[in-house]
């Protein structure tokens, strides 16, 4: 991939805002369009933008591949843990055990907020890893 100064500078300025937008989509998932998967993919696209403009080896200085693997595995285990916590707290698997707040605010709808964050991190980490392996330069 040829280097292009414009793409390189703009992608470095734009990537943090893309990551912030991804986080917004994840956390407002139960109130407006968005949610775990959509926000996760936008998070991944922020990192992929950096990959496409400068290459995976340089991007891995900021987002190392083994740390992202750790995030992915940890998010999977944490999801199962929350499900089992619902089981232990007397209700069914993936039953809600946190209090429901007022509708229309962010900390409402019980534990869906936490599940959204976990799914967003996992999906983002997964797609970042896929693109690290497929865009690798030999």
């Amino acid at each position: 991939m040829e280097e292009s100064e414009i793409v390189y500078v703009i992608s470095r300025k734009l990537a943090p805002y893309i990551l912030l937008f991804g986080l917004y989509l994840i956390s407002f998932g139960h109130l407006s369009p968005g949610g775990g998967f959509q926000g996760g993919v936008v998070l991944a696209s922020g990192v992929i933008l950096l990959c496409l403009s400068r290459g995976t080896t340089l991007t891995q200085r900021l987002f190392p591949a083994d740390r992202i693997g750790l995030v992915e595995v940890g998010a999977f285990s944490l999801f199962l843990l929350i499900g089992i916590a619902g089981l232990v707290a007397g209700r069914y698997f993936l039953g809600n055990f946190l209090p429901l707040g007022k509708a229309g605010q962010v900390p409402s709808a019980g534990f869906i907020f936490f599940l959204n964050i976990i799914i967003g991190l996992k999906v983002g980490a997964g797609i970042i890893l896929v693109c690290f392996y497929l865009l690798r330069e030999k």
Binding site: V73, F76, L80, I84, L87, F93
Partner: peptide
């Protein structure tokens, strides 16, 4: 009755353990 969900849940939990390897 809860044991029914464990039939699906236990292989998933064990798979996340095997990633610790």
């Amino acid at each position: 009755n809860n044991l029914v969900i464990f039939l699906i849940l236990i292989p998933l939990v064990a798979s996340s353990f095997s990633l610790l390897n």
